[in-house]
Simulated scan of single mutants.
Amino acid sequence: MVICATLLVAGCDEIGLKSSPTPQVRPASLRVTPPAPVAPSAQSADLARYYAKVQNDLLTRGLLRTEGGGPDTPYSSDDLVRNFENIVFFDEYSRGAGLSRTRTDQSGRLSRWSGPVRIGTEFGATVPQDQRTRDKAQIDRYASRLARITGHAITSVRTGTNFHVFVVGEDDSDFLRGRLQQIVPGIGKAELDLFTNLPRSYYCLVAAVSDTNNPNDYVRAVALIRAEHPDLVRLSCVHEELAQGLGLSNDSPSARPSIFNDDDEFALLTSHDELLLKMLYDPRLKQGMTADEARPVTGKIARDLMGQQL
């Protein structure tokens, strides 16, 4: 099963990423030149073969669908409201539990970005140049798609990044560690180890950080995508982690067709998921709303969106 870990945190939290009222652009001296490609180690090559077998197994079983849903996956406005609530207001990783799946039944509050999301992509030295070119183009296209869906300011940038996407291999831990220390000064050893020693069963990771003065306003995010994944699984990680970093933080077994479901049926963002993002960034919803406060509003939004599809 493909597992994408998501840690959406407020202020200084379980992974120790410190928030700030406004993400600061780092001076030129802290910007790094992309490392020249180098050959991966035997350990990295073994990992790539393992993930290739996993992808092949999933595809053989009819999973990792890419068409976004169809007649076999109908959903209603009531489904959207239920799935939105489960995915936005709950978190499968409880605070202080690291990567332990200890979801509580206590509902949280609606969190999302209020300011522009500026996505920057960096690659480890073991990522081949052709893969860098392909991945960067896909991330750029996806950022534009997310902007169209949400109506929010989401762009790919070279400088001034506040949503950092790292595509790195097993051998790139020193590079990743150094960049995280630049991006998040004061980050601790345990938090660095989480990113640089991610268990093999976890395919990708995103951590979003909120404003110190507003725990429901995200101001920075860091996503980790394993370079050893075959193309489709790697792209599926991009789709899920970037969307989750915008505020769709949880998974739900009832969400279908959706990438926010651990069954791996779908690899890429679906029509259902696009509507969830539209709902999340609809101005009728406000940061800090509880599930009870949002429910009447999400019902109206969902009916409006479903009516537009008729």
Rank of each mutant, 00 (worst) to 15 (best):
S94M: 14
N86W: 03
R220A: 13
P230W: 11
N213F: 15
F260M: 02
Y51S: 00
E122Y: 11
S156Q: 06
D140H: 06
R179H: 07
L276K: 04
A147F: 05
D13R: 10
K53L: 15
S100A: 15
G188K: 13
K286C: 08
L277W: 01
V2Y: 06
V157L: 07
I15K: 10
R148V: 12
D78E: 13
D79R: 09
L59D: 11
V165S: 00
L276E: 07
R109E: 11
L192S: 01
S77I: 02
P71G: 04
G11H: 07
D282T: 04
H164N: 06
D140Q: 12
N86Q: 15
R31F: 10
K136L: 13
Q106R: 14
A137M: 08
N216D: 02
R109W: 07
L192V: 00
P21G: 11
T212W: 12
V184H: 15
P35F: 03
R179T: 04
R295M: 11
A221L: 09
N250Q: 03
D172V: 05
D174H: 12
P74S: 09
G188L: 12
L305Q: 07
T33Y: 11
F175Y: 14
L59E: 08
V54H: 12
E241Q: 15
L8V: 09
T150M: 11
R234Y: 09
R61H: 15
R148S: 11
R31L: 14
S254G: 10
D251P: 05
